[in-house]
Computed example of a mutant assay.
Amino acid sequence: MNPSTAIPEAPPPTEEASGVTAVTRALRLLEAFGTADAQLTLAELSRRTGMHKTTALRIARTLAADHYLVQKEDGSWRLGRAAGWLGACYQATFNAHDLVEPVLRDLTVQTAESASFYVREGNQRTCLARVDGPRTIRHHVRVGIGLPLDLGAPGRVILAFSGEAGEPYETIRQRGYHLSMGEREPEVSSVSAPVFGIQWRLLGSVCISGPTSRLSESRLLELAQTVIHAANQLSYALAGTHKPSTQAGMAATWHP
């Protein structure tokens, strides 16, 4: 090969690139802890992160120097006060609408119908956030309005994943969603799926709704997986964890 046309060798990793890798590894180590983990052994940290033990130990000691981790007398590790301070800052400045509304907007784009997020307040469900669909004829709901729990797909889903016994709640829990047609309002259809937080705590339900003339039973069934996917996205976002690998996600493995 002519030296003038030879492909140059890739340069060695720069100090900046290696620094970014170290930061990523440090974050993976912190993320290895769950809400049920009071402490983790070095072996478990290595297993959860996929790092060699010596690498995990080196990064853990670096994090401990700034109080993000603490090593206990038995050699295991726990989160430190600096990690707790970050969590407290996040909670103090957290705005659920910043996470909810983008998911609802995406759901509206995908389905061309209005999307809503409901939470339980006593014996009612309250519309916490809503994005209207693009079509002129649509179902109208005011943010903040209280509606019955036992009428309409969003309320039925909340009841089902709150542990309500009997039907249709057993079926709702098994399939992870519910659809309704004209149950609360004549000529209005909806399909809804549950939203969970940390440790499977039910937060509410996501739904799309619109006129039955557009949302027939077959159409609702077609859109059910789209709604489930949106509910899973919101669940993992509100819980502060990674997105699920399957659309069945959290509802399929819900535990009362």
Results as ranks from 00 to 15, higher is better:
residue 2 N to V: 00
residue 4 S to I: 05
residue 5 T to N: 04
residue 7 I to N: 05
residue 8 P to G: 06
residue 12 P to V: 02
residue 18 S to C: 01
residue 24 T to Q: 13
residue 27 L to N: 00
residue 32 A to W: 08
residue 33 F to I: 03
residue 34 G to P: 07
residue 36 A to H: 14
residue 37 D to L: 04
residue 40 L to C: 02
residue 47 R to T: 07
residue 51 M to C: 03
residue 53 K to V: 04
residue 56 A to V: 08
residue 56 A to I: 07
residue 56 A to H: 11
residue 56 A to P: 12
residue 57 L to C: 02
residue 57 L to R: 14
residue 59 I to C: 01
residue 63 L to P: 13
residue 63 L to T: 06
residue 63 L to H: 12
residue 66 D to L: 03
residue 67 H to M: 00
residue 68 Y to L: 05
residue 68 Y to I: 00
residue 69 L to I: 08
residue 71 Q to Y: 01
residue 73 E to M: 08
residue 73 E to I: 05
residue 74 D to I: 03
residue 75 G to Q: 13
residue 81 R to P: 08
residue 85 W to L: 12
residue 86 L to P: 01
residue 92 A to F: 04
residue 93 T to I: 02
residue 107 L to C: 07
residue 109 V to P: 02
residue 109 V to N: 07
residue 112 A to V: 02
residue 116 S to F: 15
residue 118 Y to T: 01
residue 120 R to S: 07
residue 123 N to W: 00
residue 130 R to G: 00
residue 132 D to E: 10
residue 132 D to L: 05
residue 132 D to I: 00
residue 133 G to P: 14
residue 135 R to H: 06
residue 137 I to W: 06
residue 139 H to N: 13
residue 142 R to K: 14
residue 142 R to W: 04
residue 145 I to Y: 00
residue 146 G to Y: 01
residue 150 D to K: 13
residue 151 L to N: 10
residue 152 G to S: 11
residue 152 G to Y: 12
residue 160 A to S: 12
residue 162 S to T: 14
residue 166 G to W: 04
residue 167 E to R: 10
residue 167 E to P: 10
residue 168 P to M: 03
residue 170 E to C: 04
residue 170 E to F: 03
residue 175 R to W: 07
residue 179 L to P: 09
residue 180 S to D: 11
residue 182 G to K: 11
residue 183 E to G: 04
residue 183 E to P: 06
residue 186 P to C: 05
residue 190 S to A: 15
residue 190 S to T: 05
residue 194 P to L: 09
residue 196 F to T: 11
residue 198 I to H: 09
residue 201 R to G: 02
residue 206 V to H: 12
residue 206 V to W: 12
residue 208 I to G: 08
residue 216 S to G: 11
residue 217 E to A: 13
residue 220 L to N: 11
residue 223 L to G: 10
residue 224 A to C: 14
residue 226 T to I: 06
residue 227 V to H: 10
residue 227 V to M: 10
residue 227 V to Y: 14
residue 228 I to P: 02
residue 230 A to C: 09
residue 232 N to V: 00
residue 234 L to R: 13
residue 239 A to H: 05
residue 240 G to P: 04
residue 240 G to L: 04
residue 241 T to H: 09
residue 241 T to K: 14
residue 242 H to P: 03
residue 245 S to K: 10
residue 247 Q to F: 07
residue 250 M to F: 13
residue 250 M to A: 14
residue 251 A to G: 15
residue 252 A to P: 09
residue 252 A to G: 14
residue 254 W to N: 06
